[in-house]
Design a protein around this nucleic acid. Structure first.
Lengths: 245, 245
DNA sequence: TAGTGGTCTAGACCACAAA
DNA sequence: TTGTGGTCTAGACCACTAA
């Protein structure tokens, strides 16, 4: 078990601490989909915070789609949906687990290049600065699902290529070794035709369509750190979301 | 000007009333992008509600992307972004205006059919029930942008095909003539290859990829009313969104 | 220093679901 | 009737921005 109480001397707000605690219980499966959560009164008692603070935390979890509330009945752990994929930054591993695939990774190449102008603009750096490039083939149940090309500003994470990204998640290395957390991203979604090179890696016939995502991710300091290109096999991958109003 | 105060005898919660009021001022342009909103203290004074209630309303507007807050500086009206396209149901006309295109529409066909089983499932109706089908070619600056095929449960909107959908927005007819408002939708986004028929209508070469959206829209009574297929030219259309966490 | 939004408390009354 | 979440109040202190 992890920390399960609020540190009242910490500079982190109570509601963020409680959010991490409750989210952990859901993500780690202490509370399972469909389970009723402790009622607000109990959370107030257990964590010694006010009702407003508890409700602030529950609001966040509702927004995230992890729980839902029913007036008069209680608060329940939600069944996971693909919805969450579209609004939160999640890892390939998480994404595949939600889709009931076993994830796998092969590194296709990794090298340092000088930044071409198109990417320099997206990452707001000078043309010619060094970029670390990691190209990975992503597998689902052993079959190719997508190609990911990561372009990282090398100055922020020197020597990052010394790790093996078939074994280490890139985001974990960034967090643990370089204290860089990617907390915000902007992406564009397109349909494209597979090039010969991509078709070969993804084991698909030509011509075939791909779902193509270009994403720029920002660190906790609001610096653009990574430009990512993902090429998904259109026969295996689609996006889902919900609209309001 | 519309209603600009809170009806304290209404059964509608204060925060919902205040939300409508403030949202109206933004949408109708009383407050323009970049403008500072009145500080919380002023809203409390003017509308005679507590700070919590004011903040509940502002939270909603922040979530919707209409405003943003800066600690120590104030609360400001946000500049519209394509972001909103991905999370709100908007019309083709609105979408094109945001993208700085002049929208246009041609009706390709309209007819009544009996529901095939795949669509019956999506709309939760019996196989063989009547569907009104409207197929429209959408233009942007006079050039083909997309094909939309609407499948409507005919029982909910009898005789809907008597209107001309080159002139009348479908959603407007549904609202005005049948009191059906589409307030919620679920959609799946894929990449596909254009068929010969679609390629011809969209004036593109074969083979070409398309961005394909399947959407089921629900009325205010939570009934599925419309199944919509949209085929976008991939060379002219892409989706944009932002991710957190 | 004055004014802003961010966090937090301790109450209150209500609406709804289930027993 | 009891227990749940939904709405609302009137305060408090803090952190940040700009003058």
């Amino acid at each position: 078990m992890f920390v399960d109480n609020i540190n009242r001397r910490s500079k982190i707000p109570f509601y963020q601490q409680l959010y991490e605690i409750l989210r952990g219980k859901i993500v780690q499966g202490d509370w399972k989909p469909g389970d009723m959560m402790p009622p607000e009164s109990e959370l107030i008692e257990q964590y010694q915070v006010s009702r407003n603070t508890v409700r602030q935390v529950l609001d966040l979890l509702v927004q995230e789609g992890l729980i839902y509330r029913q007036r008069g009945r209680g608060t329940f752990v939600a069944h996971p949906t693909l919805e969450q994929t579209m609004l939160r930054i999640i890892s390939f591993t998480e994404d595949m687990q939600q889709r009931n695939f076993v994830p796998g990774t092969e590194v296709v190449s990794s090298k340092v290049i000088t930044t071409p102008i198109e990417i320099a603009e997206k990452l707001q750096i000078a043309e010619g600065e060094e970029l670390a490039v990691i190209e990975r083939l992503r597998l689902a149940d052993g079959e190719p699902m997508s190609i990911e090309k990561s372009f990282l500003v090398h100055r922020y994470c020197p020597n990052i290529l010394r790790y093996d990204y078939a074994l280490n998640p890139l985001r974990q290395v960034l967090e643990r070794e370089y204290r860089i957390k990617l907390i915000h991203a902007r992406q564009i979604i397109r349909a494209i035709m597979a090039s010969g090179e991509l078709a070969e890696l993804l084991k698909i016939q030509m011509p075939s369509p791909l779902l193509f995502i270009e994403r720029v991710s920002f660190s906790q300091d609001s610096l653009p750190v990574e430009y990512l290109e993902i090429f998904y096999r259109a026969d295996r991958y689609s996006l889902y979301n919900e609209l309001q109003d």
